[in-house]
Simulated scan of single mutants.
Amino acid sequence: MSQDSTSTRIVIRRKRGHEEDAPHGSWKIAYADFMTAMMAFFLVMWLLSLVPPKDLHAIAEYFRTPLITAITGGPKYDHGSTVIPGGAPTVIPQSLIPSESDAEAEQDRHDTLRLDGLRQEIEQLIETDPVLREFRPQLLLDMTPDGLRVQIIDQQNRPMFATGSAQVQTYLRDVLRHLGPVFNRIPNSISIAGHTDSTQYASGERLYSNWELSADRANAARQELVAGGMSEPKIKRILGLASSVSLVKDNPGAAVNRRISIVVLNRRAEQRIDKQNAAGAPVTHLDALPEPQAAPSLPRFAATP
């Protein structure tokens, strides 16, 4: 027997086992989420421990209050059937929503800044313009509750108007026409008032008095401002105050009491005037009125308003 026939072939069979499943890490994600939630919880608890007890009560009241009540105010109990408490679409607390009073205060602040800027601009114009600089002693600027006031006062040797009339002197015309365009730079309206001293007309108060004279002078100042380039719709009112508001109360006959007062009205003053004008009954028909006649220049006593 040959060697090939007698040799034995040995075959080893190995049973292949099942492969082990890959390890799953989903539990790690869940654990991480849990730890994050716990950290956030303890962080909130720590922050609440720093809040004073009175503030904690306010916070608790906020979460117990319906959403619409927290925003607009009202009863603290919600009787509605909506899913969102109070039916409001926002969760912004009332304290974070600008109230009407806050908006009004902000508008007043911007109005004050605008008028203050106009005051600085006029002061700079007076210093740089040769015409206005010459009359610097007769120009007074100050802030009043109604707005920025520009007063042009009389001097004994340099009156603004002809004696006993509303005829504008040449130098006052130049001053008003230089100021007119400046008032166009802001949207605020203008109020113009005329003032006289306490000296009365010799003919008394029946025909033509200081009241008519002061009103005519205020209107004459309006005409010069408009002629200088100021927009006429900016005029809110024309006043004739005679000697009722003296600049020097101890000396009502002083020359400085004769003046033109121009007030650049602030927002609240304009609203107040508009409400006063709207308070009366509406007028549906006006009869034709006669054309006003020019007031005569009447003699007065010693001084000239």
Rank of each mutant, 00 (worst) to 15 (best):
T144C: 02
G74S: 03
E61G: 10
G87C: 01
A22E: 10
K28V: 12
D33N: 10
F63E: 08
I71K: 05
V131P: 03
L47Q: 15
P137T: 02
D33C: 13
A22L: 11
I92K: 08
L43F: 11
P137M: 01
E100P: 00
V11E: 13
P52Q: 10
G87P: 00
I71S: 04
G117I: 02
I97H: 02
P130S: 08
M39W: 11
Y62S: 09
Q156Y: 01
L50H: 14
F42Y: 09
H24F: 02
T144K: 06
L115R: 06
R114L: 10
D154S: 11
G147E: 03
H18Y: 07
R114M: 12
E127F: 01
G87Y: 00
M39K: 15
L141P: 04
Q120K: 11
E121W: 02
A37Q: 05
S99T: 15
A30G: 09
R16S: 12
E134A: 12
F63Q: 07
D108W: 03
G73M: 06
L140H: 08
F135W: 11
T90S: 15
A58W: 13
D102H: 12
D108V: 02
K28T: 10
K76C: 02
F42S: 10
P53K: 14
R136K: 12
Q151I: 10
S26E: 11
I12A: 15
P66S: 03
L115D: 05
L96V: 10
I12T: 14
I12M: 13
G87L: 00
E104D: 10
A40D: 15
V83M: 07
P75N: 04
R64V: 09
I12L: 15
V91I: 15
A60S: 15
T72V: 06
A30Q: 09
V44Y: 07
E20L: 13
R109L: 05
Q94D: 10
W27R: 07
L48P: 11
F41Q: 08
I97C: 03
R109C: 00
S81G: 11
I12F: 14
V91S: 11
V51W: 11
